[in-house]
Computed example of a mutant assay.
Amino acid sequence: MSDAQNRQHRRLYGRAKGHALSARQQQLVDTMLPGVSWPDEGGVDPRSLLPGFDTHVLEIGFGAAEHLTGQAVRAPRTGFVGIEPFLNGVAKALAGIEEHGLSNVRVKRADARDEIERMPDASFDRIFLLFPDPWPKKRHAFRRFVQEDTAAQLARILKPGGRLRVATDVRIYADWALPLLLEAPGLDWQAEKADDWRIAPADHITTRYQSKHLGDIDPVFMDFERRAA
């Protein structure tokens, strides 16, 4: 099956939309989103989406976009690319972009698996995958974002020396994701002691979702670095 056929047959699990958007949110989706998004066909190169920026960062499944927009405010010389399938999250990202006057953020409502396959090698300096849906039941494990193929894709689009951070507060997801990421070609886990993954990194931004403590463990932060070829 070709990549295009594979994308066509994929199914995106989970909600695509929640409560009805407010009039203002719908206006942002209608008027702002086309200008900060990108086409469904062709390559997805952050250097073309956000030219002139020193570094480029990808956030997958940004939820309410607090982390995405917060990081963008902190680093105005960095270009941020966010991908989120949940319409309400995309609307919140647009509101954050407008509120802070951000010109260094591009977002798309899409399945990140499809978009990553369209990205060139060594595209990003950093990638964030924070508190993804854990799909805790064993029969749903295939729905989890971290799989052998997606772990390899994340490694592929990282620049040598680039960093990937995966965070979760669900034990079964941590136990599932860590071995797959350790086996991904080119990724080196940066933890040397327990506090390296138990304590939030200094640059982490805690979101309201994280603060709800919906998981069954304290958050773990798995940082990986892409080794040089």
Rank of each mutant, 00 (worst) to 15 (best):
R156V: 03
G161M: 09
G161Y: 15
P134T: 04
D133Y: 12
A141D: 12
I127S: 09
F142Y: 15
F142R: 15
A151L: 02
D125Q: 14
Q153M: 12
P134Y: 13
I157M: 04
A152Q: 13
W135A: 00
K138M: 04
S123T: 12
P132Q: 11
K137V: 02
A155L: 03
R143G: 08
W135I: 00
P132W: 14
F142N: 09
Q153I: 00
R139F: 08
R144C: 07
P134I: 07
W135S: 00
H140I: 05
A152H: 11
A152P: 06
S123Y: 15
P160A: 09
R156S: 02
F142T: 08
I127L: 13
R144F: 13
A141M: 10
A141E: 12
G162L: 04
D133S: 08
K138Q: 15
P136C: 02
K137T: 04
A141I: 00
A141F: 14
R143V: 06
A155F: 05
L154N: 06
R143L: 05
R144S: 10
F128E: 11
F131D: 07
L154W: 12
F128T: 01
K137Y: 10
R139D: 01
I127A: 11
H140T: 07
K159G: 01
A152D: 11
T150H: 09
F142C: 00
P134Q: 07
R156G: 02
R163G: 00
E148S: 10
P134N: 09
L164Q: 03
A151R: 06
Q147P: 03
W135R: 01
A155V: 02
F128A: 03
P160T: 11
P136E: 11
R139W: 09
P136D: 05
A141H: 15
H140D: 12
D121I: 10
F128K: 07
Q147W: 14
L164C: 03
F145W: 15
K138E: 13
L154E: 08
R165V: 06
H140C: 04
D149I: 04
D149F: 06
A122H: 15
F124D: 05
A141P: 00
A152F: 12
D125P: 02
K159V: 03
K159A: 06
R156A: 02
G161Q: 12
D125A: 14
I127M: 11
L154D: 09
L154P: 01
R139K: 13
R143P: 05
K137L: 03
R163Y: 10
F128V: 00
F128N: 10
L154I: 03
A151G: 02
M119P: 01
D133V: 04
F124C: 01
R143M: 09
A141Q: 14
D125V: 05
L164E: 03
G162Q: 07
A151N: 08
A152V: 06
K138T: 10
T150R: 08
Q147A: 14
L158W: 12
A152I: 08
L130K: 05
P160Q: 12
T150F: 10
V146P: 08
P132V: 05
L154C: 03
Q153R: 12
A122T: 14
R143K: 15
Q153D: 13
Q153K: 09
D149W: 12
L164K: 02
R144M: 06
P134R: 10
W135N: 00
D121T: 15
D149T: 11
A141R: 13
S123R: 13
P160F: 14
G161V: 04
L130I: 13
A122Y: 15
F131C: 07
D133P: 02
F124P: 00
E148T: 13
R144A: 07
M119D: 03
S123E: 14
